[in-house]
Write a protein that binds this DNA or RNA. Structure first.
Lengths: 222, 222
DNA sequence: CGTGCATTCTTGTCTAACAATCTTCGGACA
DNA sequence: TGTCCGAAGATTGTTAGACAAGAATGCACG
């Protein structure tokens, strides 16, 4: 429904700000795979109390950006082949439903169109970081445009891990930069044409390609 | 994959126990719609510290069993018609993917079969509470059997709200008790036959029926 | 009767501390 | 020398108490 995000003003809560900061550092690869994040370390680094750091860690754990079991310190996960397959299976499930629903209305979400333009620019200028960010924006915009709060929440639950792996393996560098843009365009065209089946098809193809690129960069294909 | 839950012994963490207890009280309707849950109230009721109560509230909020905005008291939500539609749209998306995947292997998860038997017993004996619980178990077992951790997590994210509304509106009472059992049986049969399309079809029909029952009990169809 | 202010309730965050658990390192013994 | 066990250190789980900030309610005043 409303693709406008209601005048985004910075996180009001301290926990929110902390959470956002750590999140960005993880998905950008500043905090590498396998890195341990203790509560006290974050608390001292950011000059906040330990409970605040704890809350941020818990939220990141819920999104899959950290792994943690009772009494053990949180670490940035390394996704193996099986987990990447699982991740993309789930992702395809959600996004297929999203583009099908969008195609049923025949309306291309403006936010997705904007992200598409951003990707083309980033591809042309070889700005990898921006390209990843715009790619995530594109897919998130598609899901958000459906107007289903719960679908969007489920998507949130997995898109963080997608971004994490994309940053870690830098899979997009393997793709001809324009390939992604073309695949995205095909999806938007199908939505505009009001063809749910075609939209789902194009989306599945696109994500399978992306998954293939990720898997092929995996250090050891065990 | 493994439908055995590794000898479930009560929650080890205090927060877990508190969370589980409140969760049950909410979905069973002991804590009614619109009820306000303050942190101090829970803390005193259960004799725990406020941060512990706070953590439990946050987890329940993440599952949609409570609504809460900054500085405001958490309340048990009342889902309106639009939200129930949204909920079932999301639910159908996930469970369709699950039964399709199961049908591709042709294996009926034993846990789901057990739940199915439990439903039949509960229907015969008119034990409403058990019927709801077994119904949730049935659907959860289907999703869990796929073996996708992320699909299961997404399902968790919405199934709580389903249970909440089922308890609140007691929609199952409107159904001939055996109807649900029959619809479930059709799904299992399609899975066993290895027919993904049929399984998805039967599942969608079943959930649309359930949604219709819920909507028809809504006080005012505004 | 409506509006604005003050009180009160609730949550957000912090400091300090103790308990429970995990990890790791060092020493004793075979 | 190698292995196993125990103890110390590190980390998380939980609590208590406190203060500040935001939200809601009721009352007084225009």
């Amino acid at each position: 429904m409303s693709t406008e995000a209601r005048l985004e003003l910075g996180p009001s809560s301290l926990t929110d700000a902390l959470y956002e900061s750590i999140r960005k550092r993880i998905v950008n690869g500043e905090i590498p795979q396998g890195e341990k994040l203790t509560e006290v370390r974050l608390a001292t680094e950011y000059n906040v109390a330990r409970p605040t750091a704890k809350a941020a860690l818990e939220r990141l754990t819920a999104l899959g950006l950290l792994r943690r079991t009772a009494h053990k310190t949180a670490v940035v996960p390394v996704l193996d082949q099986a987990e990447i397959r699982d991740l993309f299976f789930s992702r395809i499930t959600i996004e297929k439903a999203a583009v099908s629903a969008l195609a049923a209305t025949g309306e291309v979400p403006p936010e997705a169109a904007r992200a598409q333009v951003a990707i083309e620019y980033a591809a042309r200028d070889r700005m990898f970081e921006n390209q990843v960010e715009a790619d995530i924006s594109f897919h998130t915009a598609l899901v958000a445009a459906v107007g289903s709060r719960r679908l969007a929440r489920m998507h949130e639950l997995i898109i963080g891990e997608v971004q994490l792996t994309m940053g870690q393996y830098q899979a997009h560098r393997k793709a001809a930069p324009t390939t992604v843009a073309k695949e995205h365009a095909a999806i938007l065209t199908a939505i505009e044409a009001g063809d749910p089946a075609a939209a789902a098809e194009h989306l599945a193809y696109h994500l399978e390609q992306a998954q293939g690129r990720l898997l092929s960069t995996l250090p050891a294909g065990d």
